[in-house]
Design a protein around this nucleic acid. Structure first.
Lengths: 205, 205
DNA sequence: TGGCATTTACATTCATGTATGTATGCGTGT
DNA sequence: ACACGCATACATACATGAATGTAAATGCCA
């Protein structure tokens, strides 16, 4: 039965994207057909092709519904919300990104991005991911540089090294957690690890 | 011209696996057909089906030619080669794993594993990877526990937290480096970050 | 009633697996 | 030493199924 109201059409679009999340997560992107997605949403392939140009288009629409953790971190750092200094800015931004990641949709989509699709072909924004990683590293580096200039960092750690340590720890924690979300709490255990890192590199009074 | 000597047959097998590495790396696993691999090796699909049962079998044979970094770390830790203590054991094992990863074949295969295939379906040992990660974490934890008991760790860091920090840093460094091997040197910059971590958590005399 | 949302039907492409063909190396008997 | 036979190491051909994209059909809301 075709042509509901405009609002209903928008609802089926969302339903298709929800279904895509579910099926991609379960079977991986390349092994799911548009037929699978449509059936899981209670529709046929025709609905998919009405709302989206093809699989890649649908995939990107799914991505557009969430924010990249590294983008979140960049935005938080540049916003500098209620932090007491550059190091605190970095710490809070990281913990905030962890919080965002634990939301169900974020978790699903980023699990798909990390563990359910191949980072090559027209479908995947590896370029975007690389640029994001590069941009984020630069913003973090500037923050650590500022902390260094203000004498907040201990002498043993250069800003560049601190940047790599933080960046890799974030990436590793997210990667491991998305692979097995039940093995530990990102906010609690992950936050504890991040807190410890900042504790270690902060110059004591 | 069929039926070469036994040695030549083994050579074509290796050539097929080499070709698989190349094509998987270039196009991603799911988008490469056995035809692609065979042609890239200068053969036809018949050769592939003679040496391997199917794509999954070929994929696993490709994996069998390299050692998993986490397995390398586990082995190094249990071997305890010329280290001066548990912390040094961990540090050297990590750096050794980095060295191994920089070998061309290792680099290619693990890039495929991390960024060119989907961790779902019959083809991929996500089970094995999870078990490896879990085992490695346990071995590392025991090592940190021993360091703690011997008074080598600073008081602020519990063995569990140190374990998560090291494990996530390794994972993050490897992940980032495999995505863009030219952006930094795993041995140099990565090693520096690891060294710094151990410097920070080691109790000073 | 006309355009919008969706289904149905169809043509095409492509990868897979298997079955068959085929020439050669290799052991065997004499 | 030499022919014979068979298993080996591939290439070729074919049948199948699955996914894609598109065109036509259909019903509903405004």
């Amino acid at each position: 039965m075709p042509r509901r109201t405009k609002a209903e059409a928008e609802a089926t679009r969302e339903a298709l994207l929800d279904a895509a999340e579910d099926v991609f997560l379960e079977k991986g992107v390349s092994r799911t057909s548009l037929e699978h997605i449509a059936r899981h949403a209670g529709m046929t392939r025709g609905a998919v092709y009405w709302h989206f140009k093809n699989k890649a288009d649908l995939f990107h629409a799914m991505l557009d519904r969430v924010k990249m953790p590294l983008q979140q971190i960049i935005d938080d750092i540049t916003a500098e919300r209620q932090a007491t200094g550059p190091l605190d800015t970095l710490r809070l931004a990281t913990l905030h990104a962890f919080e965002m990641l634990e939301r169900p949709r974020s978790c699903r989509v980023h699990t798909i991005l990390m563990h359910r699709c191949e980072f090559i072909s027209d479908i995947n924004p590896v370029e975007l991911q690389n640029r994001l990683a590069s941009d984020c590293r630069e913003v973090v580096r500037r923050c650590f540089q500022q902390a260094h200039d203000e004498g907040l960092l201990i002498d043993e750690i250069a800003p560049d090294v601190a940047t790599l340590m933080l960046h890799s720890m974030i990436g590793g924690l997210v990667h491991d957690w998305l692979r097995a979300p039940d093995s530990f709490s990102l906010r609690e255990s992950g936050g504890e690890a991040i807190d410890s890192l900042f504790h270690l590199i902060t110059r004591r009074a």
